[in-house]
Computed example of a mutant assay.
Amino acid sequence: MAGEKQGFLTRAVQLGALRRWSQMAKAAPDTDLPELRQQRSIARKLKAQVDQLIHVADARLALPLIGNQAFPRPEDADWAWRPELWCGPLPTPGMSSVQSKSMLGKQATLFHDCAQSELTLRQLRNTREADLAAYGLRLDVFRFDGSYLSLAIDLPEEASRGLTRKHLIRIDTIVEMEKRLEIFARLNIKHGPNTEQIVRELPLHQDDIRVEFDLAYTKLNEKRVERMWLDLIFEGPQMNQVILRDLTFSRRKRAEL
């Protein structure tokens, strides 16, 4: 009740101030010059603060919502997820000269075998109208003397819970790049001492970049599934900038034949 009362009083004060300034604006043609000069001085100070509020509000309200988990997914999906890196601000937004096994956040790890790292990773705020994810990930690669470069995304426990060979795992992503390159997605499923791996090339030439992993073609031991992770493998990444605007996962069961 106290909060509602305070909110009502605040709105009443704001409306009262708006009425007073509206009245002064209408009366300005006939206001005495000394008083008009004083009103103008106050109005200019208020205008600066109002313009600042409008600027910040327009910028914040136009951006994708932080923490947003909304994205297109199959209607029959029994699990869907967007990793933290694409949802909200990380404590450390970026790093340079990235060493292998460096983590950005709790779920993303970069792997490479460069003798000298000329790689940078940075989380950036998405600002495009088409973006649903609040943040994106930018990977800058300069000189590259290694043989492999991959970004591993650890999937949460919920992704593995109840997993069967009847499931399809889908990933959707939005990718921007300076120069064309190949990106492969490898799904890894650890079950007992074994790890199943399924590799798909991302169709970067298509508007909707989407791949599905059909677990029917694996030797998955459904009773011993421990965890899953995804490797994004970049082929020929030197002198390039790659931005992953979004990355989402979903899981559904294959239709019975």
Rank of each mutant, 00 (worst) to 15 (best):
E235A: 09
I209S: 07
R227V: 00
Q238D: 14
M228D: 01
E201A: 15
E201F: 11
R210S: 11
N240W: 12
I209D: 01
Q241Y: 01
D208H: 11
E212M: 00
R224C: 11
Q206L: 10
L232P: 03
K223G: 10
Q238H: 14
A216W: 07
R245Y: 10
L202W: 14
N221A: 05
L202R: 04
H205C: 04
W229A: 01
R245K: 12
Q241R: 13
P237F: 02
R245F: 02
E226M: 02
L220F: 05
V211W: 00
F213S: 10
L244H: 05
D246S: 14
E235P: 00
P203K: 13
K223D: 15
V211I: 11
L204S: 14
I209N: 03
P237C: 04
I243F: 03
R245S: 10
L215Y: 09
I233A: 08
V242G: 05
I209C: 08
N221S: 15
I243W: 02
F213D: 11
M228K: 04
V211T: 12
I243T: 13
R227I: 00
K219Y: 10
I243S: 12
P203Y: 14
H205T: 15
D214C: 08
T218D: 14
L232E: 11
D231N: 09
R245V: 04
P203F: 15
T218M: 03
D246A: 12
V225W: 03
F213Y: 08
E222Q: 14
H205I: 06
L202I: 14
N240P: 06
L215A: 03
E201C: 13
W229V: 00
I209T: 07
T218K: 09
E235C: 06
L244P: 02
P203I: 07
V242R: 09
L204W: 13
I209K: 08
R210D: 06
L215W: 06
E212K: 07
N240S: 09
K219P: 00
L202V: 13
G236Y: 07
E212R: 06
L232C: 02
R227K: 09
M239L: 13
I233T: 09
D214V: 02
V242D: 05
L204F: 04
H205L: 14
K219G: 02
D207T: 12
R210Y: 12
Q238T: 14
Y217P: 01
Q206N: 10
P237G: 07
E212Y: 06
L202M: 10
A216I: 01
D207M: 13
Q206I: 00
Y217F: 15
E201Q: 15
F213N: 10
E235W: 08
V211K: 10
M239G: 03
F213K: 04
I233W: 08
I233G: 03
M239K: 10
K219R: 08
D214K: 00
L244F: 15
L244D: 02
E201P: 07
M228C: 13
L230I: 04
E222D: 06
E222V: 15
L202S: 10
Q238S: 15
Q241K: 09
L215Q: 02
D208R: 10
A216Q: 08
T218I: 01
Y217I: 04
W229I: 01
I243L: 15
F213M: 13
E212C: 12
D208P: 00
L202C: 05
Q206T: 11
N221I: 05
L202D: 07
F234E: 05
E226H: 00
L215K: 06
